[in-house]
Amino acid sequence: MKPIIGITTNYVDDDKFFMDLGLGALGQSYSAVAIDYFNAIKEAGGIPIIIAPTYDTDYLDSVLNLCNGILITGGNDVNPLLYNKNNNSKVGRVLKIRDNSDFYLTEKCIEKDIPLLGICRGIQVLNVVQGGTLYRHIDTNKLLDHSAVNSYKSIISHFIDVEKDSFLYEAFKTTRIGVNSFHHQGIEKLGANLKSIAKSEDGLCESVQMENKKFIVATQFHPEMMFEDEKLYLEIFKLFVKKCKN
């Protein structure tokens, strides 16, 4: 049987946004995620299922028992209080329900050695879970501007250098690869037991893996947005799904 991969989603309480699209009613909230994640897992040979953000840990435990792996997707900024920094005007909207849900799933995947792939917000969640910190807003006077928000999803924004002794190299078979970039935050201090396995030209960490685990890997870039135009980027999902079978 194909491995079942749980995909986390955003919590959206903007009822007007959906009503303007002719959907829903006043007072409704939604679980929403870009279908790129779903398509990447399916194309890589997994069975993707959607996980709504929730405070219900019994539900999340049931999902973990059902799934062979978890994909932590992009979305809202992580609350800076969770890595002992103050909130400020540069931080985007934070949502407690999403933080609680993602942190619980990540912690349990580490504890139970369930394969996990984190993307964008996912790498930041993993880093904070392990006691690391984030740049609340990347200083573009010192580092590249990583927030190419007006770019097409698969356009290469910059290049990253990949460590040979890493899952990322195992997937891509190259030490240098172009990536897209849609984030204004990033890893500052690396969390415990995490290894930086790729960096951008300015030295910012673009990917990590956890040592002595079956597959705990995260990227700051979005390979799910790129694989339809260039199949190479599907390889990280294929490796993830393969690890979920073992």
Rank of each mutant, 00 (worst) to 15 (best):
P3I: 01
I5R: 01
V12T: 14
V12F: 07
K16C: 10
D20S: 14
Y30I: 11
S31R: 10
S31N: 15
A32M: 15
A32V: 15
I35V: 13
A40I: 06
I49T: 03
I50N: 06
I51E: 04
Y55D: 12
Y55N: 14
Y59H: 12
L60A: 05
L60H: 02
L60W: 02
S62I: 05
V63W: 03
G74S: 10
S89N: 11
K90A: 07
R93D: 13
K108W: 10
I110M: 08
E111H: 10
E111D: 14
K112H: 10
P115I: 02
L117T: 08
G131H: 07
Y135P: 01
R136P: 03
H137M: 05
H137G: 07
I138F: 01
H146S: 08
H146W: 01
A148I: 10
I155F: 13
I156D: 15
F159Y: 14
F159D: 15
D165V: 04
N180Q: 08
N180K: 09
H183V: 00
H183W: 03
G191P: 07
A192M: 01
A192V: 10
K195P: 01
K199T: 15
S200G: 11
S200K: 05
L204A: 11
S207N: 09
Q209D: 07
T219D: 00
Q220H: 01
M226P: 03
E228Y: 12
Y233F: 10
E235F: 06
V241Q: 01
C244R: 04
C244E: 05
K245S: 15
N246E: 15
